[in-house]
Design a protein around this nucleic acid. Structure first.
Lengths: 113, 113
DNA sequence: CTTCATACGTAGCTACGCTACTTGTCCGGC
DNA sequence: GCCGGACAAGTAGCGTAGCTACGTATGAAG
């Protein structure tokens, strides 16, 4: 899928995967790939800067853990991060319902019953 | 709403509004605003260049109509435009279902009833 | 005659994800 | 013992694309 479409939603995605528990960068990439059936295969050059953005914004905190000399920076949602995620979710719903009104008329997914 | 989120979906939106019939630029802006309850209030500097992009791509054709000396360039979907729209719709569904899996778990959009 | 809504358009900015590259450890194969 | 590949993190520079701000012109309203 056109990854460019992510514009503006990446942060929300990252917060969402971290909601399930603290993860390190590489694991986040794999989690995204796994939970999206391979649709979201984001390069490290996308994730790492985004993570640092989120840390600067106070939405996550990172802790270094050296495992067998293998450095891993584990990111964890802060309280503000949880709140931000809630906001992002609301924003996403508004966005997707607004755009969906044009691009997905009537064909509401998961509502055929 | 954060308009930046539109990134990559604007073209699809424009094709979608034109699907209902040919419109001129200004009317497109108003149609977007109306059909989105004011959520999509896009500036002319966004719409006009986008329209010309679509025309270069062959997805729309424009015809000038001078109404009372008031120049109006009316855009109309081409055959290729219709096909492009179908593709964009499919892309949107994939995108929204992928992102929705993270941000909208269980709460299927457009199906709140 | 000035102001406002209609209508179109361009130039330059900025945000943000992507490409490409770098560094370093550990494990398996040869 | 050495080399390649998976793991892990990171930076620099690029390109895309929407946004801000501006400019032009007409017709109607005051």
């Amino acid at each position: 899928m056109k990854a460019q479409a992510l514009h503006g939603h990446l942060d929300a995605l990252l917060l969402a995967v971290l909601e399930g528990g603290a993860l390190h960068g590489y694991a986040i990439i794999e989690a995204l790939r796994a939970r999206s059936d391979g649709n979201l295969d984001l390069p490290t050059g996308t994730i790492y800067p985004a993570l640092r953005r989120l840390e600067r914004a106070g939405h996550v905190v990172s802790t270094w853990s050296t495992v067998n000399g293998r450095e891993r920076r584990t990111y964890q949602l802060t309280d503000a991060g949880h709140r931000a995620l809630a906001g992002e979710r609301a924003g996403w719903r508004e966005f997707s319902s607004t755009v969906g009104r044009f691009l997905d008329p009537g064909t509401s997914p998961a509502a055929p019953a």
